[in-house]
């Protein structure tokens, strides 16, 4: 099923950041989000993931189909790698965590506490969570932060495998992942400050 966004307007902290955005994300495709800092990439991903309501516009085909990975990985430092992953697997319906561990080369670290992992290893564990969710649409916000080149390749391979199985991905990133996907620059959709704002209308 295609994720369709029509004439979307979103706000961060009450200030509109993007308006008039429309796109469609078909199964098997990846969409790379680009845009300068503060353009609203994170806000867009959070809105699509259902964490905040849009100002206006329609989002179709997103309900319960999105696996969201934000800036923080939601790891518990006192739980081991396996325990962290198994928790998310059972929240999302009890998938086997073996393939996820292998895809991100975490097998050797399986019994280590997440608090003892390096930043890149934590990130890999956070991304491996996507594989156990079984959700078709991945929403990734700067997924390659603190990953080394090898791990970026690992991640790109995981995304490619996901796309190959009919999944889709929306990725906000500034580096080239080597994925064949359209690029969506959110810069042109920057919300204009509205002239007919009636902010002070109530005081007059």
């Amino acid at each position: 099923m295609t994720l369709t966004v029509t004439d979307l307007a979103i706000a961060r902290g009450g200030v509109p950041v993007i308006e008039g955005l429309s796109f469609a994300l078909e199964p098997g495709r990846a969409l790379i989000l680009r845009g300068p800092n503060g353009a609203g990439k994170t806000t867009l991903l959070r809105t699509l993931a259902g964490l905040q309501p849009p100002l206006s516009g329609r989002i179709e085909g997103a309900e319960d189909r999105i696996a969201y990975a934000g800036h923080s990985d939601g790891l518990k430092p006192t739980l081991s790698v396996t325990e962290n992953l198994r928790f998310w697997a059972s929240v999302f319906g009890g998938r086997d965590i073996g393939p996820a561990l292998t895809a991100f080369h975490l097998d050797d670290l399986a019994d280590r506490h997440a608090g003892n992992l390096s930043a890149g290893q934590k990130r890999r564990l956070g991304l491996s969570r996507l594989l156990v969710t079984g959700r078709p649409i991945w929403m990734l916000d700067e997924p390659t932060v603190s990953l080394d080149r090898e791990a970026v390749a690992m991640f790109a391979a995981a995304v490619r495998a996901h796309l190959g199985q009919g999944g889709s991905a929306l990725i906000a990133t500034h580096i080239d992942l080597g994925l064949e996907g359209e690029v969506l620059d959110v810069g042109p959709y920057k919300a204009r400050p509205s002239l007919d704002s009636d902010f002070d209308g109530g005081f007059l």
């Binding site: 259902g50 964490l51 319960d64 969201y68 800036h71 923080s72 939601g74 998310w88 929240v91 999302f92």
Partner: peptide, 14 residues
């Protein structure tokens, strides 16, 4: 759970 992002992820979970 809020600080380490778990709540965001739980909110998007089933």
């Amino acid at each position: 759970d809020w600080e380490d992002g778990t709540l965001d992820l739980l909110a998007t979970a089933p």
